[in-house]
Nucleic acid binder design. Structure first.
Length: 547
RNA sequence: GGCCCCGUCGUCUAGCCAGGUCUAGGACACAGGGUUUUCAUCCCUGCAACACGGGUUCGAAUCCCGUCGGGGUCACCA
Protein backbone atom coordinates (compact mmCIF):
# COMPACT_ATOMS: atom_id res chain seq x y z
CA UNK A 1 0.00 0.00 0.00
CA UNK A 2 1.19 3.47 -0.88
CA UNK A 3 1.69 5.82 2.05
CA UNK A 4 2.52 9.46 1.43
CA UNK A 5 3.15 12.22 3.84
CA UNK A 6 3.06 15.97 3.92
CA UNK A 7 5.46 17.23 6.56
CA UNK A 8 5.38 21.00 6.94
CA UNK A 9 7.30 23.00 9.45
CA UNK A 10 4.77 25.20 11.25
CA UNK A 11 6.25 28.61 10.63
CA UNK A 12 3.14 30.44 9.47
CA UNK A 13 0.50 30.21 6.81
CA UNK A 14 0.64 27.44 4.26
CA UNK A 15 2.11 28.93 1.11
CA UNK A 16 1.35 27.90 -2.41
CA UNK A 17 4.49 25.80 -2.79
CA UNK A 18 3.62 23.80 0.30
CA UNK A 19 0.09 23.40 -0.96
CA UNK A 20 1.42 21.94 -4.18
CA UNK A 21 3.56 19.40 -2.34
CA UNK A 22 0.61 18.46 -0.14
CA UNK A 23 -1.64 18.15 -3.16
CA UNK A 24 0.67 15.80 -5.03
CA UNK A 25 1.03 13.61 -1.95
CA UNK A 26 -2.71 13.57 -1.54
CA UNK A 27 -3.46 12.89 -5.19
CA UNK A 28 -1.09 9.94 -5.20
CA UNK A 29 -2.62 8.51 -2.03
CA UNK A 30 -6.18 8.97 -3.23
CA UNK A 31 -5.42 7.69 -6.71
CA UNK A 32 -3.86 4.52 -5.43
CA UNK A 33 -6.21 3.88 -2.55
CA UNK A 34 -3.31 4.41 -0.18
CA UNK A 35 -2.86 6.61 2.84
CA UNK A 36 -2.08 10.25 3.31
CA UNK A 37 -0.32 11.36 6.44
CA UNK A 38 0.24 14.77 7.97
CA UNK A 39 3.26 15.22 10.17
CA UNK A 40 4.28 18.45 11.83
CA UNK A 41 8.02 19.07 11.79
CA UNK A 42 8.37 21.33 14.78
CA UNK A 43 11.88 20.52 15.90
CA UNK A 44 13.09 24.09 15.74
CA UNK A 45 12.02 25.88 18.86
CA UNK A 46 13.08 29.26 17.56
CA UNK A 47 10.91 29.24 14.50
CA UNK A 48 7.63 27.68 15.41
CA UNK A 49 4.63 29.92 15.69
CA UNK A 50 2.19 28.61 18.29
CA UNK A 51 -0.86 28.96 16.07
CA UNK A 52 0.83 27.84 12.88
CA UNK A 53 -0.21 24.21 13.11
CA UNK A 54 -3.85 25.20 13.31
CA UNK A 55 -3.38 27.53 10.37
CA UNK A 56 -1.78 24.88 8.22
CA UNK A 57 -4.60 22.49 9.06
CA UNK A 58 -7.22 25.08 8.14
CA UNK A 59 -5.56 25.87 4.86
CA UNK A 60 -5.29 22.22 3.88
CA UNK A 61 -8.91 21.58 4.75
CA UNK A 62 -10.02 24.60 2.78
CA UNK A 63 -8.30 23.12 -0.25
CA UNK A 64 -10.11 19.86 0.39
CA UNK A 65 -6.96 17.97 1.33
CA UNK A 66 -7.54 15.57 4.20
CA UNK A 67 -5.36 12.92 5.86
CA UNK A 68 -5.76 9.44 7.24
CA UNK A 69 -3.15 9.86 9.93
CA UNK A 70 -1.94 12.96 11.67
CA UNK A 71 -3.15 15.62 14.06
CA UNK A 72 -6.88 15.56 14.65
CA UNK A 73 -8.33 18.60 12.86
CA UNK A 74 -10.84 19.06 15.68
CA UNK A 75 -8.09 19.16 18.27
CA UNK A 76 -4.52 19.18 16.93
CA UNK A 77 -3.09 18.10 20.26
CA UNK A 78 -4.75 14.73 19.65
CA UNK A 79 -3.83 12.25 16.94
CA UNK A 80 -5.62 10.13 14.40
CA UNK A 81 -3.77 6.99 13.38
CA UNK A 82 -1.66 4.30 14.97
CA UNK A 83 1.80 5.72 14.39
CA UNK A 84 1.49 8.91 16.38
CA UNK A 85 2.17 11.26 17.87
CA UNK A 86 2.53 13.23 14.66
CA UNK A 87 4.16 16.29 16.15
CA UNK A 88 7.88 15.69 16.13
CA UNK A 89 8.34 17.69 19.30
CA UNK A 90 6.43 14.91 21.06
CA UNK A 91 8.60 12.12 19.71
CA UNK A 92 11.94 12.91 21.32
CA UNK A 93 12.18 9.61 23.20
CA UNK A 94 11.96 7.78 19.91
CA UNK A 95 14.72 9.80 18.30
CA UNK A 96 16.93 9.39 21.35
CA UNK A 97 16.56 5.65 21.15
CA UNK A 98 17.74 5.49 17.54
CA UNK A 99 20.44 8.03 18.23
CA UNK A 100 21.82 5.78 20.93
CA UNK A 101 21.97 2.87 18.51
CA UNK A 102 24.00 4.92 16.10
CA UNK A 103 26.30 6.16 18.85
CA UNK A 104 26.83 2.65 20.21
CA UNK A 105 27.59 1.31 16.78
CA UNK A 106 30.14 4.05 16.18
CA UNK A 107 28.09 5.41 13.28
CA UNK A 108 27.57 8.73 15.01
CA UNK A 109 29.73 10.77 17.32
CA UNK A 110 29.68 13.77 19.60
CA UNK A 111 31.00 17.02 18.27
CA UNK A 112 32.21 19.50 20.85
CA UNK A 113 33.36 22.29 18.57
CA UNK A 114 31.64 25.61 19.05
CA UNK A 115 29.79 27.15 16.11
CA UNK A 116 32.52 29.79 15.96
CA UNK A 117 35.26 27.21 15.60
CA UNK A 118 33.36 25.52 12.81
CA UNK A 119 32.76 28.81 11.11
CA UNK A 120 36.52 29.29 10.86
CA UNK A 121 36.90 25.94 9.12
CA UNK A 122 34.02 26.71 6.82
CA UNK A 123 35.52 30.05 5.86
CA UNK A 124 38.82 28.37 5.11
CA UNK A 125 37.16 25.89 2.80
CA UNK A 126 35.36 28.70 1.04
CA UNK A 127 38.58 30.64 0.55
CA UNK A 128 40.13 27.57 -1.01
CA UNK A 129 36.99 27.19 -3.15
CA UNK A 130 36.34 23.73 -1.85
CA UNK A 131 33.28 22.04 -0.44
CA UNK A 132 33.29 22.25 3.33
CA UNK A 133 33.60 18.84 4.96
CA UNK A 134 33.61 18.57 8.70
CA UNK A 135 36.96 16.97 9.63
CA UNK A 136 35.99 13.80 11.41
CA UNK A 137 38.37 13.22 14.35
CA UNK A 138 40.45 10.02 14.32
CA UNK A 139 39.05 9.19 17.73
CA UNK A 140 35.56 10.24 18.80
CA UNK A 141 35.18 12.24 22.02
CA UNK A 142 34.26 9.86 24.87
CA UNK A 143 31.70 10.39 27.62
CA UNK A 144 34.18 12.05 29.90
CA UNK A 145 35.27 14.58 27.30
CA UNK A 146 31.69 15.32 26.42
CA UNK A 147 30.80 15.92 30.06
CA UNK A 148 33.78 18.20 30.43
CA UNK A 149 32.86 20.14 27.32
CA UNK A 150 29.33 20.58 28.62
CA UNK A 151 30.65 21.74 31.96
CA UNK A 152 32.73 24.32 30.15
CA UNK A 153 29.58 25.58 28.50
CA UNK A 154 30.52 24.40 25.05
CA UNK A 155 27.68 23.27 22.84
CA UNK A 156 27.57 19.58 22.12
CA UNK A 157 25.98 18.15 19.01
CA UNK A 158 25.91 14.70 17.47
CA UNK A 159 27.12 14.08 13.94
CA UNK A 160 26.45 11.18 11.64
CA UNK A 161 29.58 9.49 10.31
CA UNK A 162 29.03 9.28 6.57
CA UNK A 163 30.09 5.95 5.08
CA UNK A 164 33.02 5.94 2.71
CA UNK A 165 31.12 5.25 -0.48
CA UNK A 166 29.44 7.19 -3.26
CA UNK A 167 25.68 7.25 -3.10
CA UNK A 168 23.21 6.98 -5.93
CA UNK A 169 19.77 8.38 -5.26
CA UNK A 170 17.04 6.90 -7.35
CA UNK A 171 14.37 9.48 -8.00
CA UNK A 172 11.10 9.15 -9.86
CA UNK A 173 11.43 12.46 -11.60
CA UNK A 174 15.20 12.84 -11.91
CA UNK A 175 16.29 9.29 -12.54
CA UNK A 176 19.51 8.14 -10.91
CA UNK A 177 21.53 10.94 -9.38
CA UNK A 178 25.11 10.22 -8.30
CA UNK A 179 26.76 11.94 -5.38
CA UNK A 180 30.44 11.68 -4.66
CA UNK A 181 31.28 10.96 -1.04
CA UNK A 182 33.76 13.85 -1.17
CA UNK A 183 30.83 16.20 -1.31
CA UNK A 184 28.89 15.08 1.71
CA UNK A 185 29.93 16.16 5.14
CA UNK A 186 29.25 14.42 8.43
CA UNK A 187 26.07 16.31 9.21
CA UNK A 188 24.50 17.11 12.55
CA UNK A 189 21.67 14.83 13.59
CA UNK A 190 21.12 16.14 17.09
CA UNK A 191 21.33 19.79 18.02
CA UNK A 192 22.83 21.10 21.20
CA UNK A 193 19.37 21.64 22.64
CA UNK A 194 18.76 17.90 22.40
CA UNK A 195 16.29 18.11 19.52
CA UNK A 196 16.96 16.06 16.41
CA UNK A 197 17.63 17.93 13.19
CA UNK A 198 15.24 17.62 10.29
CA UNK A 199 17.44 15.05 8.60
CA UNK A 200 17.32 12.65 11.48
CA UNK A 201 13.72 13.07 12.57
CA UNK A 202 12.44 12.74 9.06
CA UNK A 203 14.35 9.55 8.36
CA UNK A 204 13.23 7.93 11.61
CA UNK A 205 9.62 8.97 11.19
CA UNK A 206 9.32 7.94 7.57
CA UNK A 207 10.44 4.47 8.60
CA UNK A 208 8.24 4.19 11.65
CA UNK A 209 5.21 5.67 9.96
CA UNK A 210 5.68 3.26 7.06
CA UNK A 211 5.92 6.00 4.48
CA UNK A 212 6.53 4.53 1.02
CA UNK A 213 6.66 7.65 -1.15
CA UNK A 214 8.44 10.86 -0.28
CA UNK A 215 7.32 13.71 -2.49
CA UNK A 216 9.05 17.00 -1.78
CA UNK A 217 10.66 20.00 -3.42
CA UNK A 218 13.84 19.85 -5.43
CA UNK A 219 15.57 21.85 -2.70
CA UNK A 220 15.77 18.59 -0.75
CA UNK A 221 17.61 16.66 -3.42
CA UNK A 222 21.05 17.49 -2.04
CA UNK A 223 19.98 16.20 1.40
CA UNK A 224 18.85 12.89 0.10
CA UNK A 225 22.16 11.01 -0.11
CA UNK A 226 22.63 11.78 3.59
CA UNK A 227 19.17 10.43 4.33
CA UNK A 228 19.85 7.29 2.35
CA UNK A 229 23.10 6.71 4.22
CA UNK A 230 21.25 7.17 7.49
CA UNK A 231 18.61 4.66 6.46
CA UNK A 232 21.27 2.09 5.67
CA UNK A 233 23.07 2.63 8.95
CA UNK A 234 19.81 2.16 10.81
CA UNK A 235 18.68 -0.82 8.75
CA UNK A 236 15.69 1.06 7.33
CA UNK A 237 13.99 0.83 3.96
CA UNK A 238 14.63 3.58 1.44
CA UNK A 239 11.32 5.02 0.29
CA UNK A 240 10.61 6.02 -3.27
CA UNK A 241 11.67 9.61 -3.80
CA UNK A 242 10.13 12.19 -6.08
CA UNK A 243 11.78 15.59 -6.04
CA UNK A 244 9.46 18.03 -7.69
CA UNK A 245 10.43 21.04 -9.71
CA UNK A 246 10.16 24.39 -7.97
CA UNK A 247 7.51 27.03 -8.57
CA UNK A 248 9.19 30.33 -9.25
CA UNK A 249 7.71 33.79 -9.23
CA UNK A 250 7.70 36.54 -11.82
CA UNK A 251 10.81 38.09 -10.36
CA UNK A 252 12.69 34.80 -10.63
CA UNK A 253 13.69 32.73 -7.66
CA UNK A 254 11.46 30.67 -5.44
CA UNK A 255 7.94 31.85 -4.87
CA UNK A 256 8.25 33.00 -1.33
CA UNK A 257 6.43 34.98 1.28
CA UNK A 258 9.20 37.53 1.24
CA UNK A 259 7.64 38.83 -1.93
CA UNK A 260 4.70 40.30 -0.09
CA UNK A 261 7.03 42.20 2.20
CA UNK A 262 9.02 43.41 -0.78
CA UNK A 263 5.95 44.67 -2.59
CA UNK A 264 4.74 46.47 0.50
CA UNK A 265 8.14 48.04 1.06
CA UNK A 266 8.20 49.33 -2.46
CA UNK A 267 4.78 50.86 -1.98
CA UNK A 268 5.80 52.59 1.23
CA UNK A 269 8.97 53.95 -0.27
CA UNK A 270 7.08 55.04 -3.38
CA UNK A 271 4.89 57.38 -1.39
CA UNK A 272 6.90 60.48 -0.60
CA UNK A 273 4.22 61.90 1.69
CA UNK A 274 3.47 58.63 3.43
CA UNK A 275 2.24 58.99 6.98
CA UNK A 276 4.59 56.52 8.60
CA UNK A 277 2.99 56.73 12.02
CA UNK A 278 -0.39 55.88 10.58
CA UNK A 279 1.08 52.99 8.59
CA UNK A 280 2.78 51.60 11.66
CA UNK A 281 -0.46 51.85 13.60
CA UNK A 282 -2.36 50.07 10.84
CA UNK A 283 0.11 47.22 11.01
CA UNK A 284 0.17 47.16 14.83
CA UNK A 285 3.84 47.99 14.77
CA UNK A 286 5.75 50.56 16.74
CA UNK A 287 7.27 53.37 14.76
CA UNK A 288 10.70 51.92 15.49
CA UNK A 289 9.71 48.54 14.14
CA UNK A 290 8.40 50.12 10.97
CA UNK A 291 11.63 52.06 10.56
CA UNK A 292 13.73 48.97 10.84
CA UNK A 293 11.44 47.24 8.35
CA UNK A 294 12.03 50.11 5.93
CA UNK A 295 15.74 49.88 6.62
CA UNK A 296 15.54 46.23 5.68
CA UNK A 297 16.48 44.95 9.10
CA UNK A 298 13.34 43.09 10.09
CA UNK A 299 10.32 41.62 8.39
CA UNK A 300 6.94 41.84 10.13
CA UNK A 301 4.53 38.93 10.37
CA UNK A 302 2.17 38.21 7.51
CA UNK A 303 -1.03 39.53 9.13
CA UNK A 304 0.71 42.82 9.92
CA UNK A 305 1.95 43.08 6.37
CA UNK A 306 -1.55 42.46 5.07
CA UNK A 307 -3.01 45.08 7.38
CA UNK A 308 -0.55 47.73 6.23
CA UNK A 309 -1.18 46.87 2.59
CA UNK A 310 -4.89 47.24 3.10
CA UNK A 311 -4.35 50.58 4.76
CA UNK A 312 -2.26 51.76 1.82
CA UNK A 313 -4.64 50.13 -0.65
CA UNK A 314 -1.87 48.27 -2.43
CA UNK A 315 -2.43 44.85 -3.87
CA UNK A 316 0.06 42.30 -2.62
CA UNK A 317 0.82 39.21 -4.66
CA UNK A 318 -1.01 36.21 -3.29
CA UNK A 319 1.50 33.73 -1.87
CA UNK A 320 -0.26 31.93 0.95
CA UNK A 321 -3.36 29.91 0.34
CA UNK A 322 -5.25 32.16 2.71
CA UNK A 323 -4.45 35.12 0.44
CA UNK A 324 -6.23 33.42 -2.41
CA UNK A 325 -9.17 32.63 -0.19
CA UNK A 326 -9.43 36.23 0.95
CA UNK A 327 -9.23 37.51 -2.61
CA UNK A 328 -12.13 35.43 -3.82
CA UNK A 329 -10.60 32.34 -5.38
CA UNK A 330 -12.30 29.03 -4.77
CA UNK A 331 -10.50 25.85 -3.70
CA UNK A 332 -11.66 23.81 -6.69
CA UNK A 333 -9.87 26.21 -9.02
CA UNK A 334 -6.76 26.41 -6.85
CA UNK A 335 -6.43 22.65 -6.68
CA UNK A 336 -6.90 22.25 -10.41
CA UNK A 337 -4.47 25.00 -11.27
CA UNK A 338 -1.78 24.00 -8.81
CA UNK A 339 -1.98 20.37 -9.90
CA UNK A 340 -1.02 21.49 -13.40
CA UNK A 341 2.15 23.15 -12.17
CA UNK A 342 4.66 20.44 -12.88
CA UNK A 343 2.20 17.76 -13.81
CA UNK A 344 -0.18 17.12 -16.67
CA UNK A 345 -2.45 14.25 -17.60
CA UNK A 346 -0.76 13.88 -20.98
CA UNK A 347 -3.75 14.66 -23.15
CA UNK A 348 -5.10 18.14 -23.64
CA UNK A 349 -7.31 18.21 -20.57
CA UNK A 350 -6.87 21.21 -18.29
CA UNK A 351 -10.09 22.14 -16.53
CA UNK A 352 -10.80 19.18 -14.30
CA UNK A 353 -12.78 18.61 -11.12
CA UNK A 354 -10.87 16.91 -8.28
CA UNK A 355 -12.35 13.51 -8.93
CA UNK A 356 -10.92 13.62 -12.41
CA UNK A 357 -7.59 14.85 -11.11
CA UNK A 358 -7.42 11.91 -8.73
CA UNK A 359 -8.33 9.49 -11.46
CA UNK A 360 -5.72 10.83 -13.86
CA UNK A 361 -2.87 11.40 -11.44
CA UNK A 362 0.37 9.58 -12.12
CA UNK A 363 3.65 10.27 -10.33
CA UNK A 364 5.59 9.33 -13.41
CA UNK A 365 4.16 12.28 -15.22
CA UNK A 366 5.71 14.93 -13.01
CA UNK A 367 8.00 17.07 -15.10
CA UNK A 368 11.49 18.27 -14.35
CA UNK A 369 11.28 21.93 -15.26
CA UNK A 370 10.60 24.79 -12.88
CA UNK A 371 7.38 26.61 -13.49
CA UNK A 372 6.24 30.15 -13.08
CA UNK A 373 3.06 30.88 -11.20
CA UNK A 374 0.80 32.65 -13.70
CA UNK A 375 -1.98 34.47 -11.85
CA UNK A 376 -3.84 35.32 -15.02
CA UNK A 377 -4.26 31.71 -15.90
CA UNK A 378 -5.39 31.01 -12.34
CA UNK A 379 -8.05 33.69 -12.75
CA UNK A 380 -9.24 31.99 -15.89
CA UNK A 381 -9.44 28.65 -14.06
CA UNK A 382 -11.36 30.34 -11.29
CA UNK A 383 -13.92 31.64 -13.79
CA UNK A 384 -14.46 28.14 -15.11
CA UNK A 385 -14.82 26.54 -11.71
CA UNK A 386 -17.14 29.27 -10.47
CA UNK A 387 -19.41 28.06 -13.25
CA UNK A 388 -18.90 24.35 -12.56
CA UNK A 389 -19.22 24.05 -8.78
CA UNK A 390 -22.58 22.91 -7.47
CA UNK A 391 -24.72 25.86 -6.31
CA UNK A 392 -24.85 24.78 -2.67
CA UNK A 393 -21.12 24.42 -2.42
CA UNK A 394 -20.54 27.70 -4.16
CA UNK A 395 -22.89 29.42 -1.76
CA UNK A 396 -20.81 28.04 1.10
CA UNK A 397 -17.61 29.40 -0.45
CA UNK A 398 -19.26 32.75 -1.01
CA UNK A 399 -20.45 33.02 2.57
CA UNK A 400 -17.06 32.27 4.04
CA UNK A 401 -15.47 34.68 1.61
CA UNK A 402 -17.85 37.47 2.63
CA UNK A 403 -17.39 36.71 6.28
CA UNK A 404 -13.61 36.78 6.26
CA UNK A 405 -13.72 40.10 4.45
CA UNK A 406 -16.31 41.65 6.75
CA UNK A 407 -18.47 42.43 3.78
CA UNK A 408 -21.79 44.24 4.25
CA UNK A 409 -23.24 41.42 2.15
CA UNK A 410 -22.30 38.88 4.81
CA UNK A 411 -25.61 39.42 6.58
CA UNK A 412 -27.78 38.79 3.53
CA UNK A 413 -29.97 35.70 3.51
CA UNK A 414 -29.07 32.60 1.53
CA UNK A 415 -31.66 33.18 -1.15
CA UNK A 416 -30.28 36.64 -1.90
CA UNK A 417 -26.71 35.39 -1.90
CA UNK A 418 -27.57 32.52 -4.20
CA UNK A 419 -29.27 34.92 -6.54
CA UNK A 420 -26.25 37.22 -6.57
CA UNK A 421 -24.13 34.28 -7.58
CA UNK A 422 -26.55 33.29 -10.28
CA UNK A 423 -26.86 36.67 -11.91
CA UNK A 424 -23.13 37.34 -11.80
CA UNK A 425 -22.23 34.42 -14.02
CA UNK A 426 -18.98 34.99 -15.83
CA UNK A 427 -17.19 36.74 -12.98
CA UNK A 428 -13.57 35.83 -12.39
CA UNK A 429 -13.57 35.87 -8.60
CA UNK A 430 -15.98 36.05 -5.69
CA UNK A 431 -14.53 39.50 -5.06
CA UNK A 432 -15.84 40.65 -8.41
CA UNK A 433 -19.27 39.31 -7.62
CA UNK A 434 -19.28 41.08 -4.31
CA UNK A 435 -18.22 44.30 -5.94
CA UNK A 436 -20.71 44.06 -8.74
CA UNK A 437 -23.56 43.56 -6.29
CA UNK A 438 -22.35 46.02 -3.67
CA UNK A 439 -25.09 48.47 -4.67
CA UNK A 440 -27.64 46.16 -3.04
CA UNK A 441 -26.19 46.87 0.37
CA UNK A 442 -25.32 50.54 0.06
CA UNK A 443 -27.34 52.99 2.12
CA UNK A 444 -26.37 55.89 -0.04
CA UNK A 445 -25.61 55.90 -3.74
CA UNK A 446 -22.52 57.72 -4.85
CA UNK A 447 -22.62 58.82 -8.43
CA UNK A 448 -19.65 58.26 -10.63
CA UNK A 449 -19.36 61.62 -12.45
CA UNK A 450 -18.31 59.92 -15.65
CA UNK A 451 -21.32 57.65 -15.60
CA UNK A 452 -23.66 60.57 -14.97
CA UNK A 453 -22.16 62.51 -17.80
CA UNK A 454 -22.12 59.62 -20.18
CA UNK A 455 -25.65 58.36 -19.68
CA UNK A 456 -27.81 60.66 -17.59
CA UNK A 457 -26.84 64.00 -19.03
CA UNK A 458 -27.95 63.03 -22.48
CA UNK A 459 -30.95 64.44 -24.34
CA UNK A 460 -34.14 62.77 -23.21
CA UNK A 461 -32.39 60.66 -20.60
CA UNK A 462 -34.19 62.25 -17.67
CA UNK A 463 -37.53 62.08 -19.44
CA UNK A 464 -37.09 58.42 -20.30
CA UNK A 465 -36.03 57.67 -16.75
CA UNK A 466 -39.12 59.41 -15.42
CA UNK A 467 -41.31 57.44 -17.77
CA UNK A 468 -39.60 54.23 -16.77
CA UNK A 469 -40.19 55.09 -13.15
CA UNK A 470 -43.87 55.52 -13.79
CA UNK A 471 -44.11 52.24 -15.62
CA UNK A 472 -42.24 50.36 -12.91
CA UNK A 473 -44.38 51.92 -10.22
CA UNK A 474 -47.48 50.44 -11.77
CA UNK A 475 -46.19 46.91 -11.80
CA UNK A 476 -47.94 44.43 -9.59
CA UNK A 477 -45.59 41.47 -9.52
CA UNK A 478 -41.93 42.33 -9.13
CA UNK A 479 -39.81 39.66 -10.68
CA UNK A 480 -37.15 39.42 -13.32
CA UNK A 481 -39.49 38.27 -16.08
CA UNK A 482 -42.06 40.96 -15.49
CA UNK A 483 -39.48 43.70 -15.19
CA UNK A 484 -37.79 42.59 -18.34
CA UNK A 485 -41.07 42.64 -20.18
CA UNK A 486 -41.96 46.08 -18.90
CA UNK A 487 -38.66 47.49 -20.07
CA UNK A 488 -39.02 45.91 -23.47
CA UNK A 489 -42.43 47.49 -23.87
CA UNK A 490 -40.96 50.86 -23.02
CA UNK A 491 -38.30 50.36 -25.65
CA UNK A 492 -40.85 49.48 -28.27
CA UNK A 493 -43.09 52.36 -27.36
CA UNK A 494 -40.31 54.90 -27.54
CA UNK A 495 -38.62 53.22 -30.46
CA UNK A 496 -35.26 53.06 -28.71
CA UNK A 497 -32.76 50.31 -28.01
CA UNK A 498 -32.40 48.52 -24.71
CA UNK A 499 -29.42 50.63 -23.74
CA UNK A 500 -31.36 53.87 -23.76
CA UNK A 501 -33.65 52.59 -21.02
CA UNK A 502 -31.42 50.20 -19.12
CA UNK A 503 -28.37 52.40 -18.71
CA UNK A 504 -30.11 55.32 -17.01
CA UNK A 505 -31.75 52.92 -14.57
CA UNK A 506 -28.42 51.28 -13.91
CA UNK A 507 -26.76 54.56 -13.08
CA UNK A 508 -29.74 55.55 -10.97
CA UNK A 509 -29.64 52.46 -8.81
CA UNK A 510 -25.90 51.82 -8.63
CA UNK A 511 -24.31 55.19 -9.36
CA UNK A 512 -22.14 53.47 -11.94
CA UNK A 513 -22.42 51.80 -15.30
CA UNK A 514 -21.63 48.39 -13.90
CA UNK A 515 -24.10 45.86 -12.57
CA UNK A 516 -25.60 42.48 -13.38
CA UNK A 517 -28.40 42.33 -15.95
CA UNK A 518 -30.77 45.19 -15.33
CA UNK A 519 -33.93 43.18 -14.70
CA UNK A 520 -32.09 40.86 -12.34
CA UNK A 521 -30.62 43.82 -10.52
CA UNK A 522 -33.97 45.50 -10.03
CA UNK A 523 -35.65 42.30 -8.94
CA UNK A 524 -33.06 41.79 -6.26
CA UNK A 525 -33.01 45.40 -5.13
CA UNK A 526 -36.77 45.42 -4.60
CA UNK A 527 -39.43 47.70 -5.90
CA UNK A 528 -39.39 50.16 -3.08
CA UNK A 529 -35.67 50.83 -3.16
CA UNK A 530 -35.63 50.95 -6.92
CA UNK A 531 -38.28 53.64 -7.06
CA UNK A 532 -36.65 55.56 -4.25
CA UNK A 533 -33.28 55.58 -5.99
CA UNK A 534 -34.80 56.64 -9.28
CA UNK A 535 -36.62 59.46 -7.53
CA UNK A 536 -33.42 60.55 -5.84
CA UNK A 537 -31.64 60.51 -9.16
CA UNK A 538 -34.37 62.52 -10.84
CA UNK A 539 -34.23 65.21 -8.22
CA UNK A 540 -30.45 65.19 -8.33
CA UNK A 541 -30.66 65.78 -12.07
CA UNK A 542 -33.14 68.64 -11.87
CA UNK A 543 -31.00 70.30 -9.22
CA UNK A 544 -27.85 70.12 -11.29
CA UNK A 545 -29.84 71.47 -14.25
CA UNK A 546 -30.67 74.62 -12.39
CA UNK A 547 -27.17 75.26 -11.07
C1' G B 1 32.79 29.48 -6.45
C1' G B 2 32.04 23.70 -5.53
C1' C B 3 28.19 20.19 -6.14
C1' C B 4 23.21 18.93 -8.12
C1' C B 5 19.03 19.77 -11.39
C1' C B 6 16.81 21.95 -15.65
C1' G B 7 16.45 24.42 -20.80
C1' U B 8 9.76 23.46 -26.57
C1' C B 9 5.35 29.83 -28.12
C1' G B 10 5.47 35.83 -23.33
C1' U B 11 3.45 31.85 -19.55
C1' C B 12 1.74 26.61 -18.19
C1' U B 13 2.55 22.47 -21.09
C1' A B 14 2.00 17.87 -25.03
C1' G B 15 5.68 15.49 -27.89
C1' C B 16 11.58 13.22 -25.84
C1' C B 17 12.54 7.38 -22.49
C1' A B 18 10.97 3.22 -27.49
C1' G B 19 14.46 9.07 -33.83
C1' G B 20 10.55 9.62 -39.29
C1' U B 21 3.28 10.32 -38.66
C1' C B 22 5.91 17.62 -36.02
C1' U B 23 5.06 22.61 -42.22
C1' A B 24 5.62 21.02 -33.36
C1' G B 25 -0.61 20.16 -30.64
C1' G B 26 -3.56 22.44 -26.45
C1' A B 27 -4.47 26.23 -22.71
C1' C B 28 -3.66 31.28 -20.56
C1' A B 29 -2.09 35.99 -22.14
C1' C B 30 -1.88 39.33 -26.38
C1' A B 31 -3.94 41.46 -31.29
C1' G B 32 -8.15 41.82 -34.61
C1' G B 33 -13.40 40.72 -35.47
C1' G B 34 -18.43 39.19 -33.75
C1' U B 35 -22.72 38.52 -29.97
C1' U B 36 -24.64 41.54 -25.80
C1' U B 37 -28.77 46.62 -21.86
C1' U B 38 -23.28 47.99 -18.73
C1' C B 39 -18.98 45.18 -16.78
C1' A B 40 -17.86 40.50 -17.57
C1' U B 41 -18.88 36.06 -20.09
C1' C B 42 -19.24 33.72 -24.85
C1' C B 43 -17.84 32.77 -30.29
C1' C B 44 -14.34 33.28 -34.50
C1' U B 45 -9.51 34.56 -36.55
C1' G B 46 -4.51 35.73 -35.92
C1' C B 47 0.46 36.18 -33.62
C1' A B 48 3.98 33.08 -31.40
C1' A B 49 8.66 28.11 -29.52
C1' C B 50 12.32 23.10 -30.21
C1' A B 51 18.71 28.16 -26.18
C1' C B 52 23.37 27.80 -29.25
C1' G B 53 27.35 24.84 -31.52
C1' G B 54 29.23 20.23 -32.78
C1' G B 55 28.53 15.09 -33.54
C1' U B 56 25.70 9.99 -34.42
C1' U B 57 22.06 8.76 -38.33
C1' C B 58 19.30 8.07 -44.75
C1' G B 59 16.59 11.12 -41.10
C1' A B 60 17.13 14.56 -34.51
C1' A B 61 12.67 18.71 -30.64
C1' U B 62 13.69 13.50 -29.62
C1' C B 63 20.31 10.03 -28.74
C1' C B 64 25.75 11.84 -27.34
C1' C B 65 29.34 15.91 -26.23
C1' G B 66 30.40 21.00 -25.44
C1' U B 67 28.94 26.17 -24.69
C1' C B 68 25.64 29.51 -22.81
C1' G B 69 21.45 30.51 -19.75
C1' G B 70 18.18 29.61 -15.49
C1' G B 71 17.22 27.31 -10.79
C1' G B 72 18.57 24.62 -6.32
C1' U B 73 22.06 23.74 -2.42
C1' C B 74 26.35 24.52 0.47
C1' A B 75 22.97 26.05 8.80
C1' C B 76 22.80 23.31 15.58
C1' C B 77 16.04 25.86 9.09
C1' A B 78 13.04 22.57 7.26
Amino acid sequence: MIVTRFAPSPTGYLHIGGARTALFCWLLARHSGGKMLLRIEDTDQKRNTPTATAQVINDLLWLGIDWDEGPDPADPSKSIGEHGPYLQSQRRDIYDEYLKKLLDAGRAYYCIDTPEEIQVLRQKAQDEKKTFLYPRPGRFPDAEEVAKARAEGRSVTVRFAMPDEDIVVSDVVRGEVKFSIDEISDFIIQKSDGFPTYHFACVVDDELMKVTHVIRGQEHLMNTPGHVALQRALGFRTPTYAHMSVTVSEGGGKLSKRERAKTLLKAIKGQADADLDAIAAAGSLSRDELDSFIAGKISPDQPNISAMAEFLQVHLPEINVIDFFQNGYIPEAMVNFVALLGWSPGDNREIMPVAELIEAFDLNRLNKTNSLFDRQKLASFNTEHLRMVEPDKLLGHFKSYLKVNDSPAADADDATLAQMLKISEGARTLAQIEEKCAFLFADEIEFDPKAVQKVLQKPNAAELLAETRAALAEMESWDEGAIHEAIEQLCAKNEVGMGKIAQPIRVAITGSTISPGIADSLALLGKEKTLKRIDDTLSFLSQSDKS
